[in-house]
Design a protein around this nucleic acid. Sequence first.
DNA 1: CCATTATTCAACCAATCGCTTGATCAACTA
DNA 2: TAGTTGATCAAGCGATTGGTTGAATAATGG
Lengths: 121, 121
Amino acid sequence: MDAAAADDRLDRAFMALADPVRRSIVARLSRGPATVTELAEPFDITTQAVSKHIQVLEAAGLVTRSRDAQRRPVHLDAAALETLTEWIDRYRLIHEQRFRRLDALLASADGADAAASAEQD
Amino acid sequence: MDAAAADDRLDRAFMALADPVRRSIVARLSRGPATVTELAEPFDITTQAVSKHIQVLEAAGLVTRSRDAQRRPVHLDAAALETLTEWIDRYRLIHEQRFRRLDALLASADGADAAASAEQD
DNA sequence: CCATTATTCAACCAATCGCTTGATCAACTA
DNA sequence: TAGTTGATCAAGCGATTGGTTGAATAATGG
């Protein structure tokens, strides 16, 4: 998978979780698979709307679907969720490491000047 | 903060990271603060557009801003990123725990039937 | 075969998104 | 003070979003 495709996947995944209905669906699916009708039940919207939400989650790789007679059970894909936390944590950790370096500099003798140059790093 | 407000914050944060330009800005800010002009430089869009992107990140609580003469340096807020990983990891872990329970049932004597009922959980 | 159930497709609508251009505001500097 | 730099505001535009209604498709069960 090239960088652009990975980017596209992240776009879709973050966008998918930006909607409260879809986040709620993910929360429900963490407890096991469910059909479209079951997933629609708690909401005040049509099953068509929920079907679209599921398509968004599926296009983002966050869920997969199987077949059971007329039903199309939806399953959570936890590995995709992990990709998201990996992206976030990468930059969170870089940021925190930078803070630790800054603290170390401030603790050293000529603190102020060293910190000012670290800021430009 | 009530549940609806927390929901709204998550909406904004996930939506903010759904855009590749904004993710790139977050990546840049993980290495230290930067001004609007600096952040705009790598992209082929106007500074106005970048300014709007930063407003989106700010409204999501992902960045804060300070003042340095005409400049408005942007700083990453790593704590907000942590809120996102917490949300994701909660449901990821619930899902994985459920899988571990399922494995345990399948490993036990009357595996098949027990697993089928667990599926409905 | 026919009716029912579960889901999706299609067309449409109001609202929002990302971006643009042009103007304005704020703060420094020659 | 006048000009310059850095950033934002405002209005507009094409594309996309989340939702609807209505019709179509697929699979089951009597």
